[in-house]
Design a binder for these strands. Sequence first.
DNA 1: GCAAAAGTGTTCTAGGTACACCCATGT
DNA 2: ACATGGGTGTACCTAGAACACTTTTGC
Lengths: 221, 221
Amino acid sequence: MHTYAFPHPAVTTDIVIFTLQDGQLKVLLIQRAHEPYKDHWSLPGGFVEIDEDLEVAALRELQEETGVTGVYLEQLYTFGQPDRDPRERVISIAYYALVPNDSLHIRADSDAKNVGWFACHQLPVLAFDHDRIIELARNRLAAKLEYSTIALQFMPAEFTLGELQKVYETILDSTLDKRNFRKRILALDCIEQTGTSRRDGKHRPARLFRRIAPGKVEFIK
Amino acid sequence: MHTYAFPHPAVTTDIVIFTLQDGQLKVLLIQRAHEPYKDHWSLPGGFVEIDEDLEVAALRELQEETGVTGVYLEQLYTFGQPDRDPRERVISIAYYALVPNDSLHIRADSDAKNVGWFACHQLPVLAFDHDRIIELARNRLAAKLEYSTIALQFMPAEFTLGELQKVYETILDSTLDKRNFRKRILALDCIEQTGTSRRDGKHRPARLFRRIAPGKVEFIK
DNA sequence: GCAAAAGTGTTCTAGGTACACCCATGT
DNA sequence: ACATGGGTGTACCTAGAACACTTTTGC
């Protein structure tokens, strides 16, 4: 037991894990096995250990649920409405992560709970205030596309310009002009040709590109 | 005493209160009366009450230290390194506030502690990680000048375009072209002439403007 | 040969930058 | 009269938007 002279809130991290699948922006959700919000879907998350850095706690959740490491992770916002959890006062530091589709190996039912990817525009009813958290994360992600190279964090080691354009179009939910897109991206000097190309379907093979600074997200303009 | 099955961190809010004085961007600091960091300067802040919303806690600190209400307040970032406070694990949700210079009445020595405004570019040695917090707040503020009307939150009810330009120049630490500045600001449709002007010194009187939507910070571009 | 995505330049437009002089007041 | 900040317009430049055809492959 742990006692304090004045009441302390519980502190958790929740993490919005984004990926792109089937041309849709998806988030990872977990079905709750217990009350409150039993059977509702919710964001992965959990209590911050007493000697654990916040970002480390978020990375731990990410690792436990997806098995991935070394992906983009950023603090989003801290949610602390007194009644957001009916059990006790819980303050949650929300993070969001971007996971390339090809590095995914969801731990299937690691502790007998359901885990799944849901398209952002058709989410189930969510536990707590997790709908607000996802909404905010989506807005932040879309905003960052405009002024940073964050979209590259969704890409595998090698990718085509067509695939990258699809990422932008999916997140921004709009179509882009191919020539303008290529001009803009190449002018950023953040990707380079591998020299190889990939045959894929009954059409001209596409040149492959790689990131110049893989882990880095740079601001542009 | 308050007892929990597993250890809980303490949660505080710290608040970076900005104002403009003498053509300088300043922040409000408080001299600590007790250990740790006794006599060091620090940000105003304190523990979040167990049933208190985070923003309400920040507003309370703001009110206690400056007496102002109804000013711009925004959550900045949450700092939670395990060793940032030597006493116990303390997670701090940092906010920043923008206070028009004319609405200031610092409570002088409300509880026998020193309070003062310090220019951002000549801060004293600060307690905890408060130097990092202020640095981040400054960057956020400067960034927001470029894509929102946040600068208006520093202005009193009526102001001249010259005064508003000075605000931009101070925060961005650069000089701006007068004609281009006026064109840009007026095109935003966020301020309007009061119809009056103000005589002030030995030169032509300046037209006065007011905000069209005083409390609102709009995104531009 | 036809369907399907890859690849490639030019023109137009709008928004941003650079720039210099007259105006109203106090001393 | 002169010093001080207030107030105004135009020319240039550059970044973003609009736009259509040829190439390479699989079937």
